[in-house]
Design a protein around this nucleic acid. Structure first.
Lengths: 196, 196
DNA sequence: CGTCCCGATACAGAATAATGCATCATTCGT
DNA sequence: ACGAATGATGCATTATTCTGTATCGGGACG
């Protein structure tokens, strides 16, 4: 229905498809339901800003505010860069575990309000899931998530959450250095503009 | 509550303030209520994607999808450009008329569904209101709007709407050429990033 | 001191997004 | 021909946005 967001949503969809990510996969990564995404993409629903951000972030995109004046410049930049080959690292066996974790965090966020810690956790999880983890690392993550699950409703959750956030981030940082080559873009990111 | 959109919203607010636009003024331009905007800006409410787009467009901004990889580049571009002096052309006496018109269009859109024509009208109005119109031109606009108002509920609205859209756009095009110098940016468009 | 504009807040009501399932028709690989 | 995965749809329920309108305290200006 809403015309303004149409182009943005269409772009997101194109990129999702070009990256070979299914709605279901995306829904898990983004913490939304497949049904939801389908309706958004087919224009039957106008997403909330944060839903849309979740979607796009899960596609390795950022939503940015740009002065109208230099939209063309940015468009140029983007288009130039959008050539190469690979597609985003899709579902590993562990995906479901991560998906659940992300859901959990999301739920906690809008139950107790979002905190910097919860947010860090969410972010880190998104990062971790697209990395190949050794058994040992995976083990650590599993434990942390389990701990989060256990304490989610506890009155004393705050410090626990903080600790978990810290541990996850530590892991993330350690990986960020040794990380070998990884997936890259594939989409085109065009527009459908026609001004008078 | 939602952390992801926080930065975006904060940016929008900064820019609004830097441009010397009040919430009320913005609310009129964007077709939202002041109350709504206040709540969005103070984080008490998570806007819908289209609401947010309306807001930002009214501030001469575009919401763009950018691959994470080249966020820094875009940021550079934007920041470089953001120096000068003026502020966005604020309320003229005619503003209220335009505001009402925009509201009307919005209402029609979500009453009968948005059409390309309605959208064109909305867009054009947004453009026209920031231009100094001669009495004659203003007269034309006033008539067109009045016509729209009259036919809004009519069963035969479609062709009328189409005609109005066309007329408005014609006016817009004629202005786009002769247009003298006009307002420019003033804001900074920074970020609050801190990665690990 | 009075007035005007600002942003924040309240509140009732209508409209919609979003969840959580479940299902279906199609397409694709085997 | 079969099974798996994809996107579209339906539906009931809950949560949230958004409108409209009105008020309030604060700051600026005269």
């Amino acid at each position: 229905m809403a015309y303004q967001s149409e182009s943005l949503i269409a772009q997101a969809r194109e990129i999702r498809e070009a990256s070979g990510v299914s709605q279901r996969a995306l829904s898990e990564r983004a913490g939304l339901t497949q049904s939801h995404i389908s309706q958004i993409e087919s224009g039957k629903l106008e997403p909330g800003l944060s839903s849309f951000i979740d979607m796009t972030r899960a596609l390795d995109l950022e939503l940015m505010l740009v002065p109208k004046k230099l939209v063309p410049a940015v468009l140029g930049l983007v288009k130039a860069q959008a050539m190469p080959d690979m597609h985003i690292h899709a579902g590993q066996p562990n995906d479901k575990r991560f998906a659940r974790a992300e859901r959990l965090v999301k739920k906690m966020k809008h139950l107790y309000g979002s905190s910097a810690d919860l947010d860090r956790i969410e972010d880190t999880i998104r990062f971790l899931r697209r990395v190949n983890l050794s058994d040992q690392e995976m083990q650590l993550v599993r434990e942390l998530i389990a701990r989060l699950e256990r304490y989610q409703a506890s009155a004393q959750a705050a410090p626990v959450v903080h600790d978990i956030a810290q541990n996850l981030q530590r892991l993330r940082n350690s990986l960020a250095h040794a990380a070998p080559s990884e997936p890259r873009p594939a989409y085109s990111l065009d527009d459908g503009d026609a001004d008078a």
